[in-house]
């Protein structure tokens, strides 16, 4: 590599910082969608760097489904405290109580689709014109097609057939009133890049990313963590296994993987050798072939 070339992880870092600064400059009211997962943790670190030595000029917004791992919520509060960033939390339970969304029928209902309503309500209430998200194009085939500044109409909908061309590094944040953008600074990062960056920056992550002993239920090829929201159905049994979470979402849809990875380096080694994809363990993606596109079109993260 010559003197004026950057290693790829640095290049991705410079690109993400550029995107964060453009979002802050072009949009008036911005929030960083914080889930407590690894991607949003990396996004917070990049935001800190983008505006250093000042503080990032936007708050964190968390949509709490009520089905989060308790470890994720504890981590979220700790991160908000240590970074000094304002944390705004909106509850799916309140959306349900207000009659704006209805719990799914059947045992162990998922609130995955419901949180879109809470998110769009929060965007309206806070009059946000940009939400920063940690989604990556390598995660999923519909996301592979999405822009960095991704336009949402007045209903919060994404229209994949009418996306704005995004040539060079020119990001267009103009919109009509009532519309907003989802901005994805990690678009070009892979799962492995995220972990390499966590290692390089020595970032703390929720404990459930590391191997631990847990009661799980095997369901539809996944190992779901046993909890008040996931209980054994007829014919299912609870077993104790050594597992970790590869992605963090709701307890109802995040499959654990059997693993002995006890450190970030172990995780990097495990993913380098992995033969299954990151979202292979997500029930929310497996509902249909275009599950992600359909949810995104409706305004999902």
């Amino acid at each position: 590599m010559s003197r004026f070339q950057l290693p790829h992880l640095s290049l991705l870092e410079h690109e993400a910082i550029h995107i964060l600064r453009e979002a802050a400059a072009q949009c008036e009211r911005v929030a960083l969608l914080f889930s407590g997962g690894k991607d949003s943790i990396v996004l917070v670190r990049l935001a800190q760097k983008a505006f250093h030595p000042a503080r990032p000029p936007f708050p964190l917004l968390h949509v709490d489904t009520g089905h989060n791992f308790p470890e994720t919520l504890a981590f979220r509060d700790r991160l908000a405290a240590t970074t000094g960033l304002r944390l705004i939390v909106r509850q799916v339970a309140e959306t349900i109580a207000a009659g704006r969304a209805h719990e799914e029928k059947g045992p162990n209902p998922s609130r995955n689709a419901l949180q879109t309503v809470t998110l769009l309500d929060a965007i309206n209430e806070l009059r946000l014109d940009a939400c920063l998200g940690g989604a990556r194009r390598d995660e999923e085939k519909a996301r592979a097609k999405e822009r960095i500044f991704s336009h949402r109409d007045e209903f919060g909908h994404w229209d994949p057939r009418r996306q704005r061309p995004e040539p060079w590094q020119l990001l267009n944040g103009r919109k009509a009133p009532g519309e907003h953008f989802r901005v994805f600074p990690l678009s070009n990062w892979t799962e492995l890049d995220v972990w390499h960056y966590i290692a390089r920056e020595r970032l703390e992550v929720p404990a459930i990313y590391f191997a631990h002993s847990r009661e799980v239920i095997a369901r539809r090829g996944m190992l779901l963590a046993c909890s008040p929201h996931v209980t054994p159905l007829d014919g299912e049994t609870v077993s104790t296994r050594t597992v970790r979470c590869r992605t963090i979402g709701d307890m109802t849809c995040t499959g654990c993987v059997e693993s002995h990875a006890a450190s970030i380096d172990d995780i990097v080694r495990e993913i380098t050798a992995a033969r299954t994809s990151e979202r292979g363990g997500r029930a929310d993606d497996q509902r249909s072939d275009t599950a992600m596109e359909d949810r995104k079109a409706a305004g999902y993260f």
């Binding site: 194009r137 390598d138 999923e140 085939k141 519909a142 996301r143 592979a144 097609k145 994949p160 057939r161 996306q163 678009s187 070009n188 072939d289 275009t290 596109e293 359909d294």
Partner: peptide
């Protein structure tokens, strides 16, 4: 990756 692409068997948009 998009529904319309899969239905029509054509590529509509840039994929990364």
């Amino acid at each position: 990756g998009l529904r319309a692409e899969r239905e029509q068997g054509i590529t509509i948009d840039v994929a990364h």
